[in-house]
Computed example of a mutant assay.
Amino acid sequence: MSKTILYARVSTSDQDVSHQLTQAEAAGFEIDEVIADEGVSGVATKLSERPQGKRLFDRLRRGDVLVVRWVDRLGRNYQDVTDTIRTFMRQGVIVRTVINGLTFDGATTDPMQEAVRDALIAFMAATAQAQAEATKEAQRAGIEANRGDPAKYRGKKPSYDRGTLQTVLTMSREGAGTSAVAKAAGISRQTVLRINSDPSAADAVLVRWGL
């Protein structure tokens, strides 16, 4: 019997993967099992080399559905992400994203549909890596600019992480109300309003904390 598995990942040990399950359920997914890696970088470590990533490869079978918040949960390395998704599709696994509700599977045999699907996978994987590289560079710049003044550099720790920020911005762009966004992201309405009022500032806070 096929099952629906959510794979969640957070990059630092003080973050919580539970909001990714909340987001998936709010989007209408019925999750049978959650497999999560906590405190694992999506840049430095391939999915197949992560403790629970290995388990994910073992658990998935033909006909199963793999749900991820976005492709950056699988990784932030272009080659690894594209290879991973194509491997799953060849095995008959359907990959679905919570954000934007995208579906990737290997069922189609139409070459044009395959080309569009593969181009979208490549674009999303490239975007994930580019975002990771931009964040790392911005973090280095912020540390250098505020060297010698840790309090100025750090500030108050945010109540959201980068995945939550992306969820808020995406859902808000799609017209979701503040309360619905807050529930899906697992944060307060005030935080949602603050993020939407100045997305750049919200991103800068994450950069300062290395999130």
Rank of each mutant, 00 (worst) to 15 (best):
D149F: 14
V71A: 06
D110K: 00
G148Y: 15
Q139L: 07
A132T: 08
Q20H: 03
P158D: 13
R76A: 09
T22Y: 00
P111H: 06
T109C: 07
L56Q: 02
V68M: 03
D83K: 14
A26V: 04
D105G: 10
E30R: 10
L56M: 07
I94K: 15
A130R: 12
I143E: 14
D149E: 15
V116A: 08
A128Y: 07
T164M: 09
E137D: 09
I121F: 10
V68A: 08
A26C: 11
A138L: 11
L74V: 08
V93A: 08
A126V: 06
T135V: 03
V81F: 05
Y160K: 08
V93L: 07
G28F: 01
Q131F: 10
H19D: 03
F123L: 13
D32P: 05
Q23H: 10
T82I: 15
K46G: 01
V95N: 06
A151P: 00
D118Q: 07
S18M: 06
I35D: 05
T108I: 07
M124Y: 07
Q131D: 12
I31A: 07
A145I: 08
R61V: 02
A138P: 09
R59M: 00
R86E: 13
F123S: 12
T164F: 05
E114D: 13
E144I: 14
Q139D: 02
A134F: 06
L165E: 03
A125F: 11
D32T: 02
A125D: 12
K156T: 12
A145V: 14
E49L: 01
I121C: 04
G28A: 10
T87R: 06
R69C: 06
V71Y: 02
S41F: 05
D64A: 12
Q113C: 07
A138S: 14
V65Y: 06
A125V: 01
N100W: 02
P150L: 13
A125S: 12
V81S: 00
A151N: 09
L56D: 00
F88W: 13
T97L: 10
A145F: 00
T84E: 09
M112A: 15
A128H: 09
L102M: 15
T109R: 14
R162G: 10
M112R: 15
A122L: 10
R140F: 02
P158I: 13
Q91W: 13
E133I: 04
V65H: 08
P150Y: 11
R86D: 13
T103P: 01
R117M: 10
K152Y: 12
R59L: 07
E114W: 04
A27I: 05
G148W: 14
R76F: 02
G75D: 03
P111A: 03
R50D: 04
I143S: 14
G163A: 03
G148S: 14
L60R: 01
Q91Y: 13
A126Y: 04
Q20P: 04
L47E: 02
H19G: 00
T45K: 11
D118R: 06
E49F: 05
L56P: 01
T84C: 10
R117E: 10
L47M: 04
Q131W: 08
F57G: 09
V98W: 07
L47C: 01
V68W: 02
R61G: 04
A36D: 01
V68L: 08
T108Y: 06
